[in-house]
Design a protein around this nucleic acid. Structure first.
Lengths: 337, 337
DNA sequence: GTGAAAGCGCTAACAT
DNA sequence: ATGTTAGCGCTTTCAC
């Protein structure tokens, strides 16, 4: 069933059918109705490949998700998918491991799928203009930006929280309660990524309160997974280091940390406070509920798509949105014993 | 950069380039090498739309996810995405709400994207052959099948656990511990879907042990979300019904239920046992850890893709795989007080 | 082993 | 308001 068949069935030309299908105004109501009717009852759906071919661009927007094991992404992916659908575009998603190169994947996708735009979810923070030469469509970095790189701000868009600040706020909450020996649960401290940035905020908060950071209180899990978070916390406890609170760079790891502490006979928040950043809805159903700085995930997904569409439409060159985290009081922090 | 450009750059014809790109044997090694070299350094990537157009089918596999708020799907989506990538196909994902029609969406996608195959994640169980007329590519139902419908088993494939049996096993665990007043937390009891099936298993287990089901002990949440699970459990407790255990049809709802019980001053498992089905990795990090029947998500995702590829390749007409759930002992069940 | 040319289904000039 | 036609970039006969 092609456009030709429809044309023949209606006794009109293919261009007329094309006009109707593309909602052009210059078609008589009668013909339009007839065509629509025929389309309907023959279950005809235009061939997207043919369309993309002639328009030399498709209706596809690529989503490259890096380091997939972060549950925080699930919610955002959901929103992005919904918004892209709603805008009449098609979501083409690729998930890549944390050590794969998202730019390379994005560049290939762009050419293969004739993408109109790209959204990167979770990536490196140190792109250089050179390596982005291969990406020629608009793209937006969701939940991260290029603070370690040398990209011209005009050349890309982003939607982020202020990670360093959020970490500072979180740690300040602990300091305010009187904690001095505050441990930090990170993925890495020098991965030029979200983990490093939040780690910096942790250091900054400590220093500003005259607390000297202690390397022995830094637990590196190597990833964002609960499993690794659990293990790293266990090692921290077993190391014998003295601490009365933990700042975790992610909710998922914090939940694993609480479990680890519990398994070591330490009750949260009585024996140890735990605070994190992310604000998974899940964290409201753990016991104790997690005190955390919420990233507005729905908003972040929505803004990412909105910006991308705006840039694609030429309405703006680029846009960087910084969204606010919101403190969500849980029951996982308390003054030190 | 098109195939023509490459041809010109190499001083050969487009057909030769095409042959090289498609790994045809009838090209001289010298020319092949030259073409490959040119392709490489010009960053040329073939236009997928043009390819799909002439081959009248693309490299795309559609994934329709219905009722997206179920965290259980995230893991499976991850695996399916990985496997599809690995097989050299492209994942095109559409997420639809629980009350949308996945068959209609799938049919449209099939035509628009010239899909090679479809995977449905979470759908109705009562398809009729008529309504599937529009789907002409192979498809597999992941985590559900057509037990309420009238589909010919030959006409589709599926990967599922035995939901009713799993529910029975879960409830049996509670009965074995001596529980008699067992509540059930479901989405709906008559939605001809996974919830109804597991509810049936619950009824069956009770009856087989001579326990008369009590309608007052059925908490309908209306969805699979934690929020609704929490609310439904709250209502159950507030109704004043007497029960010593809860069987939840999903892990997520069970976690919410545990939280609700806790908020009502009931400790799990001391005052009330909780068991579920799903086996989210998350459930190993809650306190208490959840006792649950694990669905082998990775395997389910892998098998879904494998079956689809096999059917697409004509190696088999259809295949129905029933995977085993695995009991994972947690700390959420105990004998009644 | 290689090239020329037809055509996949569609859109967008250009005619009428 | 509607029809005719030239490609979009690629694969695939069919010649040579």
């Amino acid at each position: 069933m092609t456009i030709k068949d429809i044309a023949r069935l209606c006794g009109v030309s293919v261009s007329t059918v094309s006009r109707v299908l593309n909602e052009r105004p210059d078609v008589s109501p009668a013909v339009r109705e007839a065509v629509l009717e025929t389309v309907r009852k023959s279950n005809y759906v235009p061939n997207n490949s043919a369309r993309s071919l002639v328009k030399t661009s498709s209706d596809a927007i690529g989503l490259v998700v890096r380091g997939v094991s972060n549950p925080f992404y699930s919610e955002i992916i959901k929103v992005i998918g919904r918004e892209i659908d709603a805008a009449g575009y098609t979501l083409v998603m690729q998930q890549i491991s944390a050590n794969a190169d998202e730019i390379e994947r994005g560049a290939i996708m762009e050419r293969e799928k004739k993408l109109r735009g790209l959204i990167f979810l979770g990536g490196r923070w140190d792109y250089s203009p050179e390596e982005l030469g291969l990406i020629t469509v608009p793209f937006v970095c969701c939940s991260y930006n290029n603070s370690f790189g040398s990209l011209d701000r005009e050349s890309y868009s982003s939607v982020t929280i202020e990670d360093e600040l959020a970490a500072e706020r979180a740690v300040n909450e602990l300091l305010r309660l009187g904690h001095k020996r505050i441990a930090c649960l990170v993925a890495e401290t020098d991965d030029r990524s979200i983990s490093e940035l939040r780690y910096r905020g942790y250091l900054k908060a400590l220093r500003e309160h005259g607390v000297e950071p202690d390397g022995a209180l830094v637990a590196r899990s190597g990833s964002f997974s609960m499993e690794d978070g659990y293990r790293a916390t266990m090692e921290l406890v077993e190391s014998g280091s003295d601490f009365s609170a933990i700042f975790s760079i992610s909710d998922a790891m914090a939940i694993a940390a609480i479990k680890a502490l519990d398994d070591c006979g330490r009750s949260v928040p009585r024996d140890c406070s735990v605070i994190a950043i992310d604000g998974l809805s899940l964290s409201e159903y753990t016991r104790p509920t997690l005190t955390t700085l919420c990233q507005p995930m729905a908003r972040m997904g929505e803004e990412s798509v909105k910006i991308l569409l705006d840039v694609m439409n030429g309405w703006t060159k680029s846009r960087h949105i910084v969204v606010e985290t919101q403190f969500r009081a849980g029951a996982s922090i308390a003054p030190p014993a």
